[in-house]
Design a protein around this nucleic acid. Sequence first.
DNA 1: TGGTACTATCGACTCGTTTCGAGAGCGTGT
DNA 2: ACACGCTCTCGAAACGAGTCGATAGTACCA
Lengths: 343, 343
Amino acid sequence: MDDADSERRQNGGNKRPRLEDVAARVGVSTASVSLVLRGVSGPSERTRQRVLKAAAELGYQADRTASLLASRRTRLLGVMVDVHSPYHAEVVDFLHTAAEEVGYDLVLSTLTRTRDEHTAVDTLLAFRSEALILLGPTSPADTLAALDRKAPVIVVGRRITDEQLDVVRTADDDGVGQIVDHLVGLGHRAITYVDGGKGVIATDRRRGYRTAMRRHGLDAHIKVLRGDNTEAAGERAARRLLDGTTLPTAVVAFNDQCAIGVLAALSRAGVAVPGEVSVAGYDDDTLSRLSCFNLTTVSQNAEQQARHAVAAAVERLDQGRNDPCEVVLSPQLVVRGTVAEPA
Amino acid sequence: MDDADSERRQNGGNKRPRLEDVAARVGVSTASVSLVLRGVSGPSERTRQRVLKAAAELGYQADRTASLLASRRTRLLGVMVDVHSPYHAEVVDFLHTAAEEVGYDLVLSTLTRTRDEHTAVDTLLAFRSEALILLGPTSPADTLAALDRKAPVIVVGRRITDEQLDVVRTADDDGVGQIVDHLVGLGHRAITYVDGGKGVIATDRRRGYRTAMRRHGLDAHIKVLRGDNTEAAGERAARRLLDGTTLPTAVVAFNDQCAIGVLAALSRAGVAVPGEVSVAGYDDDTLSRLSCFNLTTVSQNAEQQARHAVAAAVERLDQGRNDPCEVVLSPQLVVRGTVAEPA
DNA sequence: TGGTACTATCGACTCGTTTCGAGAGCGTGT
DNA sequence: ACACGCTCTCGAAACGAGTCGATAGTACCA
C-alpha cells in the first residue's frame, strides 16, 4: 500500500523522495519539513510528528549535495589518509567520534599508488571541506602553506617548518628519549639506534636518541645504523650488528616495522630477546601488539591527536582563531616484553 | 599582482572563485566555461584557451556539491570499508584505479567502533552514490536487499543467500581445498583445521577443508579445532594441539591472523615450522608477507575483486543490467616458507 | 474592539553547477 | 538576395535543499 502510494507520488520511476515529496504528503511547506528534519525549534509538535512519520514512510533521506550547497556552511572536515597505514586507521576512528561531538562530518580521501597527495586534497576541496586534516603529509611546507589559503590546514603527525600552519604531533625526540631513559634505568649502556632514513620524523627521533644518550653520559656508546621504515631495513641493520664483534645490549629502532625486522634477524641468529639483547620500536602499531612480538614501543596516542586536530579545525572555523597553533603531545612508553635488564 | 587582482574581483573576502568569476574574467557565459572545463566539445579553441588560462589564474576548482546537484548523474560509487582491515585497504586501492578508468569517483565511508554499517551506508547515500560497494558487510541479507532498492548493492567478499544482489567473492572452499591439495601433494595426511567461528566465510572454508580431505580419502584425519579470526584464538587452538598426544603434520588456519597465533604458540613450544609441522593461513594479508612469518597462504586477489565490483556497478548503472550477478573468483595459493614435506 | 506579543507556517530567493533550446554569426550554393 | 547548414555562444531553467522576512493565526489584555 505504502509502496504503491509513494511510487505514484514520485515522478514515475523509483527516484528518491525529495523534501517536496514529504511536504506534499503532510500538506505543509518544504520549509517546515526542513526545519523539522534538522531538529530546529519552530514547528509545532503536531507538525513535527506528522513530518517525521511521513519522512519515515517515504524512506526520505536528505540529499547531502543539496544541503551542502544551500547552507553556507558544510560542516565537513576533509581528511587525507593513507589507507594502508594501521596507525592512520586508528586516528580516523577517533576523528569520527571527535568530529561528531562538535557536529562535523568527515570526508575521507586516500592515498594510493596512483593517487598522490595533490589529487587526494583536491577531492577534499571539491567536496567543500571547510578544513583539511592531513595525516602525515609529505608535501613540502610551502605547498601546504599555499593550500592553507584555501582552507585551514591541520598537519597531523609531522613537524613542519612553516610557521603558519596548525600542527598536531607528538614529540618524537622525547619519545625516543623515554625509551633510552627506560633502558638506561634497567642498566643498559650499549644502546644502538637503527635510523629511519630521510624525513623530518626520522631526524627528530635520531636527535632524541643522541640527546638522551648524552644526557646519560653515554656519548661513547652512541651508534646509529642506517635503516628505514621497513622490516627489511631492520633485518639488514641487525645483520650488520651480528657481523660486528660485540652486540649492544639494546637496540632502539626507528619504528615498529623496523624493530620487527631486527627481532626477526636476531631470533634467526639464535640471539635471545630480551635475554641477550633488548629491542624497542616506535608507534605502538598493530604489529607491536601481536603477542608473538609483544614489542616494547612508544604510543603516539591516536585519540589525543584526533581530538586536538578536530579542536584545531573548530577553533579556526568557529572561534575565529587566526594564529597558527602547534600541539605537541607527549608520547607514551608502552612497556611490553622485548626489553629487560641486560644480561 | 594576480593575487590582488583576483581578490578584488571576488566579492570582498577570500571566497573561492565560482564559475561566474571565471566567466566574467574571460567575458563569456558560465555555460561556455562549464563546457570548457569539463572538456566537452563545442567551445572554440580560442575560448578554450582563454578560459583555461583564467581558471588557472584564479585557482578555480569546481564545487563538486554543485556539480553533483546539477547533473542528473553523480558518477559516484559509495564504498563501505573497514579502515582497520589491511585487506580492505588493498581493495580500495584497486577500486580507485578501476573506477577512474570508467570515469567514476569514490566516496569512502568507514566502520568504526561507534559507527555501524547502517550509519556508514547512510552517509554514502547522502552523498548520492549511484551504487554501493560493500566490503565484507555483516548485515543480514534482507537488510542488504532492502538497501538494493535505493541503489544497486555490490557485496564484496562474502557469500550471500539473497538471489537479488550482486556478489563478488572468491571461492573460499576452493581456496582451502587448494591448500589441502598442496599439503597432500607434499605427503601430508594428518592435516588439522583451525576454525574461524561463526559466519558464512568460516562455514565455507570449513566445508572446503572437509570436502578436500574426503576427496583425498583422508576422512579419518579430519579434525576441526574451534577458533576465530584472531591471533589469540590461533594460539589457544595451538596449545590445545600441543596438549594432545600426537601433533598433526600440518595445520591449516581460518585466516592469516589465526595462523600467526598458531605459529607463535608452536615456536614458543619449540616445535619447528615447517620442519615438524607445516602451517598455512588464508588472505595473504600484510602480516603473512612479513619475512619473519613468511606464511604460506591463499590470496583473494584484491585487484580482480575490485575490478569486478566496479564492473558490476557499471553494468547496473550504464548498461541496464537488472539481473543479479555473482562473480566467484578463484583464489590463488601463495607458497611461502611455512609449508614443507612432512618429517 | 483594537492592540500587542507570540507562535506556526509559508513563499520566494539563494547556493554553484549543468543542461538545453534558442539564436547569433558566418560561409556556401542557388 | 535568400535559404541552408554549421559552429559557437548564451540565457534561463533546473537540481534539492536551506534561509529569512513576511504573514496568518491565536491568546491575552485593556
